[in-house]
C-alpha cells in the first residue's frame, strides 16, 4: 500500500488540477476562457492551479493575439502526459486495493 501512495503525484493533488490535465490530455491547445468555463472556475482560481503545473513543466502555454485581444492557450507537455498517466495508474491500483481492505 505504501508503494502505491508514493506513486501518487503531489502536483495533481487537487481536483481542479486533475480537471485541467484531463482536458489537456485529450485536446491539442485549449484557450484560457474555455478552460475556465469547462471547469467552472474564476480567473484567479484557474491561474493559481495552473501555476504548479507550469512549474513542474507539465503544461506549456503560448500567447497570441486574436484580433486585438491577447489570448493564452495551454497544452500538456509530453512529460505532463506521462506523469498524468502514471498518476491515473496509481489511482487505479489504489482503488483496486481499497476494495480488498
Amino acid at each position: 500500500m505504501k508503494d502505491i501512495l508514493t506513486q501518487l503525484n503531489p502536483v495533481f493533488d487537487h481536483r481542479n488540477r486533475l480537471g485541467i490535465m484531463s482536458i489537456l490530455a485529450v485536446n491539442d491547445w485549449v484557450d484560457y476562457g474555455t478552460l475556465k468555463e469547462l471547469l467552472n472556475l474564476t480567473d484567479g482560481n484557474l491561474a493559481s492551479h495552473m501555476k504548479p503545473l507550469e512549474a513542474a513543466e507539465y503544461v506549456e502555454y503560448r500567447k497570441q493575439f486574436v484580433g486585438r485581444r491577447p489570448q493564452t492557450t495551454y497544452a500538456a507537455t509530453a512529460a505532463g502526459k506521462t506523469a498524468f498517466k502514471a498518476h491515473l495508474d496509481a489511482l487505479e491500483a489504489m482503488l483496486k486495493f481499497g476494495k480488498d481492505i
Binding site: 481536483r15 486533475l18 480537471g19 484531463s22 482536458i23 490530455a25 485529450v26 485536446n27 485549449v30 474555455t34 469547462l38 471547469l39 489511482l91
Partner: peptide, 13 residues
Amino acid sequence: HLAEMRSLMERST
C-alpha cells in the same frame, strides 16, 4: 474525481 475527469474529457472534445 475520476467520474468528473471522464465528464470533462467528454465535454471538452
